[in-house]
Amino acid sequence: MFRPTLRSTTRILRGTTPTSFLNGRLAAYRFLSNEARSKIQTAVDSKPVVLFMKGTLDAPECGFSRAAAQILELQGVPHGKLQTYNVLQDPELRTSIKEFSEWPTIPQIYVNGEFVGGCDILLSMHQSGELETLLEDKGVIPKVEEPATTAPA
């Protein structure tokens, strides 16, 4: 869905963007056109949970993407509420998602259109319980009223 127009628009804009524009942190990123931005926005909003990863849920192609996918699985995120995009299938997406999120690495996780972070942040939120709370608050997974501790002593 990203391929048809991204290439030409970014090239044109890159040619006309004054280099003084791209100082400081922006130097790491190419200028992202409004068109490219709106395509990614559509992808980000496509499902409550969106994971930009290398490979697929069934066949992740990077350990960090695998970890992110496993955490979402462990949290019980229903597949109907999860959309993944394989950046290895789309070189333009791979570049532009980094600019869009201002985040240099893959995977990247969005919940209800908000950037949550990459693998490390997802993992630490998973461990601290923050991720469960976030997913519950956003209605992605059902709230557990009273955690049933049925494990025998």
Partner: peptide, 11 residues
């Protein structure tokens, strides 16, 4: 926040 900390380092 964690994300702000990571951004400081990434930048």
């Amino acid at each position: 926040s964690p994300i702000q900390r990571h951004r400081m380092i990434n930048t």
